[in-house]
């Protein structure tokens, strides 16, 4: 259980310190309103460095994203995140603990959310912010084309 950085062993707290990782700051935070959940089309955007087996793996300072069609079998999902400082055995056991596609599908079936995007996405979270921003801008256009109006951002 990871409570606060101050409660972690020193080596881990130091590794995760906001100063070392240079967390970006923003002048303000936009918040959009929208339809009720039952009418929304939802996409999952992971930053776990996920992709289909055979797709181009992620590399250092890579701000781009990979495409994961909704029908991608779990057996085709792999992870090429450059960091070795997080657990991967959970993902090895059950992809949903990182990429909850089956849970989202169930919530679509029971009507909690309106529908699921036809395509989902993954970045690799260690990206420099400047490298990812143009890709995120491009991705927003792709999401609108898929009529997506809600994004679940899932880190690793």
């Amino acid at each position: 259980m990871v409570r606060r950085l101050g409660e972690l062993p020193e080596v881990e707290a130091k590794h995760l310190s906001p100063e070392r990782l240079k967390c970006p700051t923003f002048d303000d935070t936009p918040l959009l309103s929208g339809k009720p959940l039952g009418a929304r089309r939802v996409v999952i955007i992971s930053t776990a460095g996920l992709h289909k087996r055979g797709d181009r793996p992620f590399d250092r300072d890579d701000g781009s994203y990979r495409v994961i069609p909704a029908e991608t079998p779990a057996s085709e999902l792999v992870m090429s995140h450059i960091s070795v400082n997080f657990d991967r055995t959970g993902f090895q056991q059950d992809h949903n603990v990182v990429f909850p596609i089956d849970r989202l599908r169930e919530l679509t079936v029971d009507g909690t959310v309106g529908s699921m995007a036809s395509v989902h996405y993954s970045f690799m979270g260690a990206f420099p912010v400047d490298a990812a921003e143009p890709h995120a801008r491009h991705l927003a256009g792709m999401l609108k084309a898929d009529k997506v109006d809600a994004a679940l951002l899932v880190p690793v």
Binding site: V2, R4, L5, L16, P18, L21, C23, P24, T25, F26, T29, P30, L31, L32, S33, G34, I45, T47, F123, G125, V129, A132, E133, A136, R137, L139, A140, G141, L143, K144, V148, D149, A150, A151, L152, L153, V154, P155, V156
Partner: peptide, 29 residues
């Protein structure tokens, strides 16, 4: 991860994220 929320929301896509390190999220907002 938090930066993506800023980028996408600014482009018209509402977002909700998971935070694994609260201190990072408190800064990125």
């Amino acid at each position: 991860m938090g930066a993506l929320g800023h980028f996408l929301e600014r482009q018209g896509i509402p977002t909700a994220g998971i935070s694994l390190v609260r201190e990072h999220t408190e800064i990125i907002r």
